[in-house]
Nucleic acid binder design. Structure first.
Length: 506
RNA sequence: GCCCCCAUCGUCUAGUGGCCUAGGACACUGGCUUUUCAUGCCAGCAACGGGAGUUCAAUUCUCCCUGGGGGUACCA
């Protein structure tokens, strides 16, 4: 349809500043970003802030932060600059107005003077008469002079695009040709009464001016595209490649929306992760999130499932993007995270862990303040964890002060008090042995425990479990050698002593 | 209502007319490993929505039905 061959690929992601980046939006960014990186093109970030009523304060900073966390960098846009700026639509009003004037003069757009009440009446009538279009093009169409006069009279005036009476075919790289018959789309608003352009108009002007070659967006935009194509023809613009991606839903088929969080909170359930930031705070790795969403609507055509961002750049092609909507399976994401946690370079894993500690709420202060070396060792001792909160659950006690250990009554009963305080008896013995242990290392601690087991002809668990409960208060901790080394000799002995003091008399 | 898109295990998906007794992954079930919690390993369960065609042969092509989704704003 258009001659874009030979032109450098330029794609964009154009979020509205209404909050954090949505996980579905993240998938849209990812595919756009991959297309750019794959082809050596440019990835542009544009902020679509034309609806002032929906604008949320620091959204832009949040979205940028989410993108950085995911590892996706932009070549042009906020903070990055670029030749096609400004990259905030609210700063491009004069650009829109220029093109608007052209369309007004050519007669492809016109001032419309109807009041909201009049529009509502039109809609009701259309519904009653089962007509397709609810907006009746005025006859005669108001002249430019009439429109401007109405504006001077402080009347609410909008500009509408005169939808041409012809079939429009959208050539979609994913869906194929989609034709919309003439007469299906009414004259739509391109400039609101507050002087701001609507999405459709701003988007078309910006894509042209920013020389966007490929528009990859969610399928919810498919029916907008004929409108955009019609405007492009009116303005003599190039029509970019279009590709509409399948939508992502909850497991129950509903849309993934922020409302899910409010609903869950009301019912006392844990809120589901919806925004990228939710996953970050919940202790997921960006590598896992990226890997997982990359497979929602795309696959390499073989059995591979484990992809880093770099591997995705190598493997990704638009023609492997599917057409079917997908459901977001958190169980599978959890599995991906587990795999990534196990396979990621430890330096990167630790960096991600620190990010989690600072980003997430409910992290005990003593862990936030903990010594880096000790944190590293703690994380290492937790291999096999699924998400970062598991690490806290498993080694959090190490960072508490010795006097703050709370003993889980169930664990005490099962491991220490059972069989006439057998566990306490072991601790009585172990405390002197450990005290005498000069080399406080995993190897020598395990050797000691082994010796005790052999001497008394008992199983490892009979010694390890009482120790575990004594130092952690629960039956959950890393391997016993790791646990005691992490804790250090002094704390270990102090905690065992304290535990022994709590022994119930027989 | 009207317009548009989609349709393989519970979920993400492979499959492009015979290689399919439909493959992989998650989940699930059973077993193994293990000093706790996890992890890991092995095995099993499990799908072509329905109906007409086309063809020697349809999961794969066509049509209809059904189902799901999207759009129908001075939101993007």
């Amino acid at each position: 349809m258009t001659k874009l061959e030979g032109t450098k690929v330029r794609v964009r992601f154009a979020p509205s500043p209404t909050g954090y980046l949505h996980i579905g939006g993240a998938r849209t960014v990812l595919f756009n970003w991959l297309l750019a990186r794959k082809s050596g093109g440019k990835f542009i970030l544009r902020i679509e802030d034309t609806d002032r009523s929906r604008h949320v304060g620091d959204s832009v900073a949040k979205i940028l932060d989410d993108l950085r966390w995911l590892g996706m960098t932009w070549d042009e846009g906020p903070e990055a600059g670029g030749d096609a700026g400004p990259y905030f639509q609210s700063e491009r009003l004069s650009l829109y107005n220029e093109h608007l004037a052209r369309m007004l003069e050519s007669g492809d757009a016109y001032y419309a003077l109807e009041t909201p009440q009049e529009l509502e009446t039109m809609r009701e009538n259309a519904r009653a008469e089962k007509r397709i279009l609810s907006y009746d093009r005025p006859s005669p169409i108001p002249t430019i002079e009439e429109g401007e006069a109405a504006k001077r009279d402080r009347k609410k005036v909008v500009v509408r695009f005169k939808m041409p009476d012809e079939d429009i075919t959208v050539c979609d790289d994913i869906l194929g040709d989609v034709t919309l018959k003439s007469g299906q789309i009414e004259d739509f608003v391109i400039q609101k009464s507050d002087g701001f352009p609507t999405y459709h108009f701003a988007c078309v002007v910006d894509d042209e001016l920013m020389k966007i070659t490929h528009v990859l967006r969610g399928q919810e935009h498919l029916m907008n595209t004929p409108k955009h194509v019609a405007m492009q023809r009116s303005l003599g613009f190039t029509t970019p490649h279009y590709a509409h991606m399948p939508v992502i839903f909850n497991m129950n088929g509903s849309k993934m929306s922020k409302r899910d969080k409010e609903k869950a909170l009301k019912n006392g359930d844990p809120p589901p992760e919806i925004d990228v930031n939710d996953f970050r705070v919940a202790g997921y790795l960006p590598e896992a999130v990226v890997n997982f969403i990359s497979l929602l609507g795309w696959n390499p055509g073989d059995d591979r499932e484990h992809f880093s961002l770099g591997e995705l750049v190598e493997t990704f092609t638009l023609d492997r993007v599917g057409k079917t909507n997908a459901k977001f399976d958190r169980e599978k994401l959890l599995a991906f995270n587990t795999n990534w946690a196990a396979s990621l370079d430890f330096g990167l894993l630790f960096k991600a862990f620190c990010d989690f500690l600072s980003a997430s709420e409910n992290i005990p202060q003593e862990i936030r303040d903990a010594d880096e070396k000790k944190l590293r060792e703690a994380l290492k001792a937790c291999s096999g964890f699924r998400i970062f909160p598991d690490v806290i659950k498993k080694v959090g006690f190490v960072f508490a002060s010795d006097n703050d250990i709370e003993f889980d009554p169930k664990a005490v009963k099962k491991v220490l008090a059972k069989n006439e305080n057998a566990g306490y008896a072991i601790l009585d013995h172990m405390i002197t042995r450990l005290e005498a242990l000069a080399d406080w290392s995993v190897g020598s601690i395990e050797r000691l425990i082994n010796d005790v087991c052999e001497a008394r002809d008992i199983k490892m668990g009979n010694v390890a479990q009482p120790l575990r409960v004594a130092v952690s208060g629960s039956t959950i901790s890393p391997a016993i050698g790791d646990t005691l080394v992490l804790l250090g000799k002094k704390s270990t002995l102090a905690r065992i002593r304290k535990c022994l003091m709590n022994r119930e008399p027989k």
